[in-house]
């Protein structure tokens, strides 16, 4: 007689549970702990301001002018860098002459830490807004150009053949096959570029500026205004989260076929 054995679930160890409660508690718990630590005076406010103090200053709106200044630099630099990067990436990906000129130039200049170019940029375009926007533009340009180029080069040759067989010319090919093929890579580049843009913004504002969040953070530290410093950091993390969220939403709109 044969025994009945129920089959075991051997993939049990691989199961990944969602832990929804822990997820919500983790961030809140840290904030509550932080508030407690500052309330009890265990850590002096000079080193660690309380979250409630930070929220109060954020709500007062006295720092909005810095946010506006930084946001303008960020949007201009990011927009310009993305536009230039995508255009150059498309051209280098499609035209062999542009590729012959572009790839060695990009390979040679890509590794330069962009912030090291800020002094040169200040010399060239002045210490005002232009040099800050320019350094962000440069920082965004490279990931955008490289990602767009890769996306175009990886376009499915079969789709290119299909388009050509239906009479598509060069510009039709670029617009209707290469560009949509490269869109997922372009959005990956935009997300990378957004992080780089924020980093360069803060660095540039710490080196040479009299307004902006980076300036705010450095200035507050000099004056030992730790709450203000912390507000600057919170603002920056906010900018990072919001820009990423916006890009993810935009990506879903722009690439509906990947849903």
């Amino acid at each position: 007689m044969s025994a009945r054995l129920s089959a075991p679930d051997r993939t049990h160890a691989l199961e990944r549970r969602a832990h929804p409660v822990v997820r919500v508690l983790a961030l809140r718990g840290v904030v509550v702990l932080w508030e407690l630590v500052t309330r009890t005076g265990w850590v002096p406010a000079l080193f660690l301001p309380s979250p409630s103090g930070v929220v109060e200053m954020l709500a007062s709106g006295e720092l909005l002018v810095h946010v506006a200044t930084s946001l303008r630099r960020l949007l201009l630099g990011f927009g310009l860098g993305a536009l230039l990067g995508v255009s150059v990436g498309l051209a280098v990906g499609f035209f062999s002459l542009a590729e012959a000129v572009g790839t060695p130039l990009i390979a040679a200049t890509f590794p330069i830490p962009k912030i090291a170019l800020l002094p040169l940029l200040i010399l060239w375009v002045g210490i005002g807004e232009a040099s800050k926007v320019a350094v962000i533009t440069l920082g965004v340009f490279f990931p955008m150009a490289i990602n767009t180029y890769t996306g175009v080069r990886n376009a499915d040759p079969l789709l290119i053949r299909a388009a050509v067989s239906f009479g598509a010319g060069r510009f039709s090919l670029i617009r209707k096959v290469m560009l949509p093929s490269a869109l997922p890579m372009i959005f990956a580049g935009l997300k990378l570029g957004a992080g780089t843009a924020l980093l360069l913004l803060v660095a540039a504002e710490m080196i040479a500026a009299n307004a902006g969040i980076g300036f705010l953070v450095l200035h507050a530290q000099n004056l030992m205004e730790t709450t203000k410093l912390m507000v600057g950091i919170v603002l920056l993390s906010f900018l990072g989260i919001v820009s990423h969220w916006l890009l993810v939403r935009l990506e879903r709109l722009a690439i509906p076929w990947k849903a």
């Binding site: 299909a162 209707k176 869109l183």
Partner: peptide
């Protein structure tokens, strides 16, 4: 084509219209 070669970013309607656009 054997592997269909449809444009994944185009709907059925837009795929069918492709050659007509080029014309």
């Amino acid at each position: 084509f054997q592997e269909f070669a449809l444009f994944p970013w185009r709907t059925v309607q837009a795929n069918v219209e492709f050659g007509l656009e080029e014309a």
